[in-house]
């Protein structure tokens, strides 16, 4: 794989993470426990979809095959998606949604902060834009982990279950492959392993304050970055891509 192909793959990962999590959050629209939460989840989804457009448009531009963000989002099949498995996990209850968000936001924040120093100014400027948004995403998901963890017996039980169940998807966030290594070599992206300590520090401190216990580091479920997904992604795409599949080239 040459340097350009590696960069396109890397940008697809960034874009697909934002796209799939953004879509997941949008599924809450009209179903949230309170109006304020409905607005909040939809707004976080909107930020992520906005970031998706920036990353995927750049990926398409560098690829040079005439694919823009819409084509990449609507016309690829599951095996061509490069998001981590964490973001495609079902919404579950509110605790699951917030635990997934907290794990992701804390990592996303650290990653974007590093990417603001990317040698490629196009990557750096998208990261700087996204970082502002992800900062308040993280504040919010962290608050919810605290509130539910250190809340009622019921909310604590649900948050603890969510923290435990999603744990095995967090290892993939820090595992590097040849694409990540190529980015490090070119000065385009950070060594993912260096994000692990600060991530764990924040997650641990938050769990402690929330009276939650963190699982031991252990076996990690991986594959999304290479296109090996859980069954959930296909269902997401069936929903997300329906219109373009049923009515090809339909426009607004």
């Amino acid at each position: 794989m040459n340097a350009q192909d590696a960069l396109v793959e890397y940008l697809l990962r960034l874009g697909d993470n934002a796209l799939i999590l953004g879509h997941r959050l949008s599924e809450w629209c009209g179903h949230s426990p309170a109006l304020e939460e409905d607005l909040a989840l939809s707004n976080v989804a909107l930020d992520l979809i906005g970031q998706t457009q920036l990353w995927l448009n750049l990926a398409g531009e560098i690829e040079g095959k005439g694919r823009d963000a819409d084509k990449l989002a609507y016309l690829r099949d599951a095996r061509d998606f490069r998001n981590v498995l964490l973001v495609e996990q079902p919404n579950g209850d509110f605790a699951v949604t917030m635990a997934r968000q907290f794990y992701f936001d804390a990592w996303h924040y650290l990653l974007l902060r590093e990417l603001t120093g990317s040698k490629d100014p196009r990557i750096a400027e998208i990261a700087a834009k996204g970082l502002k948004e992800v900062t308040y995403h993280l504040e919010r998901s962290q608050e919810w982990v605290l509130r539910l963890g250190d809340g009622t017996e019921e909310s604590h039980r649900r948050m603890q279950t969510a923290i435990d169940d999603l744990w095995m998807y967090t290892g993939e966030l820090f595992a590097s492959d040849e694409i990540d290594r190529a980015m490090v070599q070119e000065g385009l992206g950070p060594d993912l392993a260096t994000l692990h300590e600060p991530w764990l520090g924040l997650v641990r401190a938050t769990a402690e304050e929330a009276t939650l216990s963190l699982p031991q580091p252990g076996w990690a479920q991986k594959g999304g970055k290479r296109g090996i997904h859980s069954e959930h992604l296909g269902y997401i795409l069936a929903d997300l891509q329906f219109l373009q599949r049923a009515y090809p080239n339909a426009t607004w």
Partner: peptide
């Protein structure tokens, strides 16, 4: 603060 988000992404309630 009632909510981090309001009627648009740029506003809180």
């Amino acid at each position: 603060r009632v909510s981090e988000f309001g009627s648009t992404p740029c506003k809180a309630q």
